[in-house]
Design a protein around this nucleic acid. Structure first.
Length: 513
RNA sequence: GCCAGGGUAGCUCAGUGGUAGAGCAGAGGACUCAUAAGCCUUUGGUCGGCAGUUCAAAUCUGCCCCUUGGCACCA
């Protein structure tokens, strides 16, 4: 069996409803996955939910339900988001699943047997009210804030994973693989972190303090905490311990936010894999955050944009287009309703949607609802074909390099080119003329517009799958699996039926939200 | 404090040595197939600040300012 292209998102934490950040990461990963499929690769695309831990246990207590009920509810919310966004993941992992518990316990036992895990006393400051250890860092003006209540120094036995012994190896590995982290400048964050000596990692919690977790196989009084539970999902879903594993692992891309690169994904995870003698993931694709007036959009700032609202109102594809067009992968981006509306109205409704409308309408009026033959090739046609040649040559490299915002810019520049072409030929004027030359120009102009639209949406497909399919249907083109052979200008649409007049991106009747 | 990203037109951003760009927003115009859309023309910027290198700097160097993130057991 050949190796699949294995791509993952981070798994979401079951501690709140999905927001724009969750939605964005899934869309970004989905675009890479869809693009790779079009390029002919077999893809495994994983996303999922991280369900254990203190916060889940506490919110369950608060609601008076079991932790699993809390997780079930959130899992269906997050999976609903995936469906609403047309995310093409072919697996969804929940860390409470048996397949996952088995792998976590298996690797913990292996590492314990190898002497990579040991028991020791952990000394720290404990907040009874928050049921968690607090650090010096959380002090404000030399004392812990009121929300922590009474904080006492306690000593607790726990299990530790030997991180420190792999520090030099990790530094060498990251220096030697400058392609591992995209964008590259993020490697500097990792290396800076590794300048300080690593401490071993506390990986357990006593059950008396936290019972909502996976039990340590070698000590039933403890559950494992956070990292060995959450990060391990990537190999669980890859089929660790089964024949399928080699077909998936190593992952080609872990898509993550910039906040979880250091230390978990770039330090803990590689060292865990090294200790298990497994290959490292090939790449991390590290994206930025959505900002609102310069601050991170998050629940805590009370500026949650519920992506589902925009999706319901404007459609998954419009949402996907917006986040992809605005975000320079790796940087932060600005989000506002005004920006969204501006993109929706000018790019989608006015430029693309309206172009489809005018073609279908003219096709119905002038060429009996069919794509006519392209009979002549003069300056306007040559110019548009040249623009396409230039555009199409850029698109695949831009997609390969995650420059989706630029790829969309190029595609929509081409769409503008089609509108300009229509003005130049002015088929509505040609239609009033009886001369053979004008009639040939009329047929050519509609054929050219249809073919240009087919090409324009070819590489729009990973970003806007439904609209692209719909436009292909309307101009008489076939859907396709592979991009190969789809980017060349031709006359395959000649004689095909054009669709009924359709409004692809209706103008909002009133301002909602 | 240390490290890194960003600071370019009202807004969102392209632009790594050679006469400041795009889209949107604003203004004017011609057209009418179309979602009052599209097309053409146009207003608008001491390129964060101060020095320096150079014939030439948004672009290279230094210092400073603003902003975002990281600096471990919090995911």
């Amino acid at each position: 069996m050949s190796k699949k292209f294995y791509i993952t998102t981070a798994i979401d934490y079951a501690n709140g409803s999905p927001h724009l950040g969750h939605a964005y990461e899934k869309v970004l990963t989905d675009i890479v996955a869809r693009f790779r499929r079009m390029m002919g690769e077999e893809v495994k695309f994983l996303t999922g939910l991280d369900e254990h831990g203190q916060k889940v246990q506490m919110s369950a207590q608060k609601l008076g339900v079991s932790p699993l009920e809390v997780c079930d509810r959130l899992a269906s919310e997050f999976q609903g988001l995936c469906r609403a966004l047309r995310i093409s993941n072919d697996d969804y992992i929940r860390t409470t699943e048996e397949r996952h518990k088995a792998v976590v316990q298996d690797i913990l036992q292996k590492l314990y047997d190898k002497g990579e895990i040991y028991k020791a006393d952990y000394n720290g400051y404990y907040s009874v009210r928050q049921e968690q250890f607090v650090t010096e860092k959380e002090k404000v003006d030399g004392t812990w804030p009121e929300i922590f209540g009474e904080v006492t120094e306690v000593t607790e036995s726990n299990y530790f994973f030997k991180l420190a012994r792999y520090q030099d190896w990790l530094i060498d590995t990251i220096r030697a693989n400058d392609q591992m982290i995209y964008p590259r400048f993020r490697s500097a964050d990792v290396l800076q972190f590794l300048k300080e000596p690593l401490n071993d990692l506390c990986i357990s919690r006593p059950k008396e303090r936290l019972e909502w977790g996976i039990e340590l196989p070698f000590d039933p009084d403890f559950v494992t905490y956070v990292w060995f539970d959450a990060l391990t999902n990537y190999i669980t879903a890859a089929g660790y311990g089964t024949d399928a594993f080699e077909q998936h692992w190593p992952a080609d891309y872990h898509v993550i936010g910039k906040d979880i690169l250091v230390p978990p994904h770039a330090v803990y995870w590689p060292i865990m894999l090294k200790a298990l003698e497994l290959p490292l993931p090939k790449h991390f694709l590290v994206h930025g955050w959505w900002l609102s007036s310069g601050s991170k959009m998050s629940k805590s700032s009370g500026e949650v944009i519920n992506p589902l609202d925009l999706i319901d109102q404007f459609g998954a594809d419009a949402f996907r287009y917006f986040v992809t067009r605005e975000m320079n992968v790796g940087q932060d981006s600005e989000f506002s309703l005004d920006l969204f509306m501006s993109r929706y109205n000018s790019d989608l409704a006015n430029d693309l949607g309206n172009l489809v409308s005018r073609l279908l309408n003219m096709g119905g009026r002038y060429t009996e609802g069919r794509v006519p033959p392209a009979e002549i090739e003069e300056a306007p046609e040559k110019q548009l074909k040249e623009l396409w040649l230039k555009t199409s040559a850029e698109l695949v490299p831009l997609f390969e390099d995650f420059q989706f915002h630029k790829a969309l810019d190029r595609i929509f520049t081409f769409v503008s080119g089609i509108n300009r072409y229509a003005e130049t030929r002015a088929p509505w004027k040609l239609a009033k003329s009886e001369t053979p030359a004008d009639q040939a120009a009329l047929r050519t102009s509609l054929a050219t517009m249809a073919e240009a639209l087919r090409l324009a949406v070819a590489l729009l497909t990973p970003v806007m799958p439904e609209i692209s399919d719909k436009i292909r249907g309307l101009v008489g083109a076939e859907n396709f699996e592979l991009i190969e052979g789809q980017l060349e200008w031709g006359n395959r649409l000649e004689g095909k039926a054009l669709g009924e007049k359709t409004i692809l991106f209706p103008r909002p009747e009133r301002k909602v939200l």
